[in-house]
Design a protein around this nucleic acid. Structure first.
Lengths: 210, 210
DNA sequence: TCCCTCCTCCCCATTTCGGGGGATTCCAAC
DNA sequence: GTTGGAATCCCCCGAAATGGGGAGGAGGGA
């Protein structure tokens, strides 16, 4: 952090201009950091990363065109050492887990204090990881749970859209009995009391987006 | 907007420091606007409004302590001419409707462009109203719908939490038949295909918060 | 006062869920 | 090559939800 070190070169990826503005002026006030580029979706992020090779990328998750998770995956496929910090409003533990699995080094909430954010940037730049405490807590509560399989998610999404088991079966080209089996497993895995509760829990945890 | 006019005095209310930062630097760049105070929840907003009597208040909806709707109601109870613009991430048409009924003059999304925001501030200051186009569209789609009654919302919330009709009845101290009647009405009003769908629709439209 | 909405309760018939059980196939990993 | 998970399908059965009907009382506003 001494003034002889080169500054931490930062890329911001967020579709909210106001938030980019806030991040930008925050970074401008840190002598050891430098904003090198901004992007407002995953595709732009990929291009900006290629062009500028930032030390740290601050990335939102929900964006148009290409979401943050896919962008992280794409960037890390080409640049496996990229250091990416996800910065988002709260969307359940599963989204955080997916981001981390995709290669994110940090997961922070937009409601955090400026001080914590700049500390996290320095921390991640130094090679550490940082997950917001409440997200980490929630993730820890579910580490023993089985995750939903792709098929179970498919069923759950159709159920959330108002389809009865029979309709889900027809749409998926499987038997109603199979749909019932999937829903039984979903409810058990999510600790839900019925299908309605299962959908609510899955939405809150970021397992399905409706 | 001539330089001889006094600047528009603005209060920012948002629990995200980063977003306040962004708004602040945006306003700083407008010669006809001046930031007079910031608050990070409804209670602080009330105090700040009393202290500074801003021309325009930019207010988020979801905040800890006291939410934006209650804050708008409280402010307008004391200062009926207060001009308040709601600035939020998308949360369904019902939240917007509630804000407007509480007395908001504008309802904007945080994803909007800077230019639109400053134009809206000037516009509202001049006495006009401004609702984001997509929110206005969605609100228009539901103007003919009956709103859910308080009791119907209570039932729906308990259903969303995984309670069967019988359990809802026990918790509310009414008969299961009454719960069924409420759910029938809820599903009809929301155009939902079953109880699960009703909960999803209500969550998407901001009718219930889970 | 009358009218309307909301809340409340009831009946009926049918369909759908939910919780048991078990079973097969396939594929990938160990 | 065996083991295990995932996906598929089947049975039974009681409980719950759905959809149709009707109806009374309380309260607010025209």
């Amino acid at each position: 952090m001494s003034s002889t070190n080169p500054p931490i070169r930062i890329l911001i990826v967020d579709d909210h201009p106001l938030l980019r503005e806030g991040l930008s002026s925050l970074i401008a006030g840190q002598p050891d950091m430098q904003l090198v580029a901004e992007a407002e979706n995953g595709e732009q992020a990929l291009q900006a990363f290629r062009d500028h090779q930032p030390d740290i990328t601050l990335m939102d998750v929900q964006m148009p065109m290409m979401n943050g998770i896919d962008a992280i995956t794409a960037i890390r496929a080409q640049y496996p050492t990229a250091r990416i910090i996800v910065l988002t409003t709260y969307k359940g533990d599963m989204q955080a887990l997916r981001a981390i699995k995709a290669g994110a080094s940090g997961y922070l909430l937009k409601s955090m204090l400026r001080k914590e954010l700049v500390e996290t940037i320095r921390s991640v730049h130094a090679g550490r990881r940082r997950i917001a405490a409440d997200i980490a807590t929630e993730m820890a509560e579910h580490v023993t749970d089985d995750e939903l399989t792709a098929r179970e998610c498919d069923v759950l999404r159709l159920v959330a859209a108002g389809n009865a088991n029979k309709e889900v079966a027809a749409r998926m080209g499987i038997s109603e009995e199979t749909v019932k089996t999937h829903m039984k497993n979903v409810m058990t895995k999510l600790g839900a009391r019925d299908r309605t509760h299962a959908v609510v829990v899955a939405m809150k945890r970021g397992i399905i987006d409706i």
